[in-house]
Structures are given as structure tokens and as C-alpha cells.
């Protein structure tokens, strides 16, 4: 069985999904079930003071016993905020140490600040966290993140929430070729074919949120993403044919054709 191993734990789905931007918890749950994802990201936020105490909680809809919850540091622009957020997450999730680190650099592009990301990753790893790290698609940075002990490298395919797809497959290819930990495309996937392209390149997985949650039919898109990731993975494992512009080679036999063109040659 083709499985994905992250920090020593085996997963059978290579699609990781976020839980943001859904209409309501019912749609969140339905989409996540349709996606078949085992790892799902959650954000950590201040509780709304004065909220209705009976308001449903995301963790009741998505119990940690059924999924691997991956708390993120979305919205954090400093090392300190990211670290405090994940310490709170670890406490909230009863000591769970697998986390998604992102330290952003700019609110307009949500592009990661890699200098701060590396600093935060070093501290978190020292504190015993298993860090899956959001990164730019710089192959040197990606390798450094692996060397300091990150358990998965998660390069962007394009900007967070942009849906622009795989903009630099060549950088992703280099990152994948260099890596000995899983490489998971995080950010930029807009539709199913983007996920397939990422997997065909040899990515170990795809993480997507907006493409599913903001589709006209989120549950159907979740199902499409599941198939797209599986298809891309199978195509990668199968090994694609070589590309060639000329020197075409027909699939059917070249001899025995009844065409008069061959008869005239006699």
C-alpha cells in the first residue's frame, strides 16, 4: 500500500485539507469527509468574550480522535506570536505536537517571511514540536528547513488563497529532488488539475483549503480533489512517457494498412 509517512506516522490519504471559509460546521464536516483527508488544519484564535456558551465548537464537529488535527499559525507575523500560538495549541490538543508553522511577511501577499520562519522552527523543534513548515519555493531554504529538523516541507505553489495553481514547477521539482522528508504543496491550488500536476511532479501530498471551501459546491470539489491527488500520485508512480515533438509513434501497427498509399509503392 502506497502510504505517506510524516514524523513516523502512516497516512493513506495524501490530501490534507483546511477547515476555514466554510458556510457552517455541517458543510465543513461533509467536505472533509468527501475529501477523505486524515490530516486537517485548524487555526487557534481568542475565544469570543461574551459568546453564547452553548455555541458549537469546531473540535466537537471534528473530534481529535477521528482526525489528525494540524494546528497552524496562520496570521502570525512574528516568531513570538507563532510560538505562543503553537504552545497554546499543544495545550488545547492534549500534548499533540504535530503542527503547521507559517510566519507571514506581508498581509497583501501572505508571502512567508523565511528568516523569521527558520528562527521559529528552530525554537519549536527544540521544544519537542514536530514542525510541518510553510515555505517559499526556494530550494536552498527548503533544504535548510529539513536540516534543522522540520518533518515536512510545504512550499507554496502560488500565493495563499490565490487559486493560481502551480506557477513554478521547476522549483518544486528541485525541492522534491533534494528532500528526504515529505514535500507537500501548500497554498495556491485552485482546482483538481492543479493538485494532479503537483502530485505528478512527485510531491508527497497537497494541502488545500480555499479551493474546496469556496467552490460553488464545496463537497463535490472535495471529492474531486481526493480523486485528483490519487490520480496524480498513480501517474507519478507509473512513470509518464517521454515527451517528443516529432518522430511520432502510432499506437496501432504500422503494417497491414489497407490504404492505397502502400500499394502504389509496389
Amino acid at each position: 500500500m502506497d502510504s505517506l509517512i510524516i514524523a513516523g506516522k502512516t497516512y493513506f490519504s495524501r490530501l490534507l485539507v483546511g477547515t476555514g471559509k466554510y458556510k457552517d460546521f455541517a458543510e465543513t464536516r461533509a467536505a472533509i469527509d468527501a475529501s477523505g483527508a486524515e490530516i486537517i488544519t485548524v487555526a487557534i484564535r481568542r475565544t469570543n468574550l461574551g459568546q453564547n456558551p452553548d455555541e458549537p465548537n469546531l473540535l466537537d464537529v471534528l473530534p481529535p480522535s477521528q482526525y489528525t488535527l494540524l494546528p497552524n499559525t496562520a496570521g502570525c507575523y512574528t516568531v513570538d506570536d507563532a510560538i505562543r500560538t503553537l504552545r497554546l495549541a499543544r495545550e488545547l490538543l492534549d500534548g499533540h505536537s504535530l503542527v503547521k508553522l507559517e510566519v507571514l511577511g506581508d498581509p497583501r501577499t501572505l508571502y512567508p517571511n523565511m528568516v523569521e520562519t527558520i528562527k521559529a522552527a528552530e525554537i519549536l523543534i527544540k521544544e519537542g514540536f514536530q514542525v510541518m513548515v510553510y515555505t517559499s519555493d526556494d530550494p536552498i531554504i527548503a533544504k535548510q528547513l529539513e536540516e534543522i529538523g522540520c518533518v515536512a516541507i510545504m512550499p507554496l505553489a502560488s500565493l495563499i488563497g490565490s487559486g493560481m495553481g502551480i506557477l513554478n514547477p521547476w522549483n518544486l521539482q528541485i525541492i522534491i529532488d533534494n528532500a528526504t522528508v515529505p514535500v507537500i504543496v501548500d497554498a495556491g491550488v485552485g482546482t483538481a488539475s492543479d493538485a494532479t500536476i503537483a502530485m505528478e511532479l512527485g510531491c508527497d501530498g497537497v494541502l488545500t483549503n480555499t479551493a474546496i471551501a469556496t467552490a460553488q459546491n464545496a463537497v463535490l470539489m472535495a471529492s474531486a480533489m481526493k480523486k485528483a491527488v490519487e490520480a496524480g500520485r498513480e501517474a507519478y508512480r507509473a512513470g509518464r512517457m517521454a515527451k517528443r515533438l516529432y518522430n511520432g509513434s502510432p499506437s496501432s501497427p504500422v503494417s497491414g494498412i489497407i490504404a492505397s498509399r502502400t500499394d502504389k509503392a509496389l
Binding site: 477547515t19 485548524v42 487557534i44 488545547l92
Partner: peptide
């Protein structure tokens, strides 16, 4: 004090 919960996010 910071009092936090898990919410939907990607």
C-alpha cells in the same frame, strides 16, 4: 490572559 479555542483555518 489569553483564552483560545480551535477555529476553522487552512
Amino acid at each position: 490572559l489569553e483564552i483560545v479555542v480551535a477555529v476553522g483555518g487552512g
